[in-house]
């Protein structure tokens, strides 16, 4: 793996508390000494947030697709009748 990817992996281990503790301690020392590395940590952390949100949005889309099928497909008529009966009152 090229050097920049190794560095990404080290930052990941430090941010997500993975890998061996000694390696994380070394990364932490490097971060403290390097403003450049500190910025990379910050950006990588923001990237994880973006990935999480992207994953969440994909899941929402999948849930809505399942919901649509359940409420509109003739295969799920008994489910639809059950729900309709609840909201009839």
């Amino acid at each position: 793996m090229r050097t920049s990817l190794v560095e990404i992996a080290q930052i990941e281990n430090w941010l997500l508390k993975r890998g061996n503790p000694q390696g994380r301690l070394l990364t932490e020392a490097k971060i403290l000494c390097s403003p450049d590395l500190k910025e990379k940590v910050h950006l990588q952390s923001a990237s994880y947030e973006a990935i999480h949100q992207y994953g969440r949005e994909k899941l929402f889309q999948e849930i809505r697709a399942v919901e649509y099928r359940l409420f509109h497909s003739s295969k799920h008529r008994s489910f639809q009748n059950r729900i309709r009966a609840i909201f009839k009152h």
Partner: peptide, 23 residues
């Protein structure tokens, strides 16, 4: 996976000025 993460991190950096509040 790491290459993709590097790419996303670069893109976040490019847009960092526009989203200072978030970053």
């Amino acid at each position: 996976k790491y290459k993709c993460l590097e790419k996303v991190r670069e893109q976040v950096k490019r847009k960092a000025m526009c989203y200072e509040d978030f970053l």
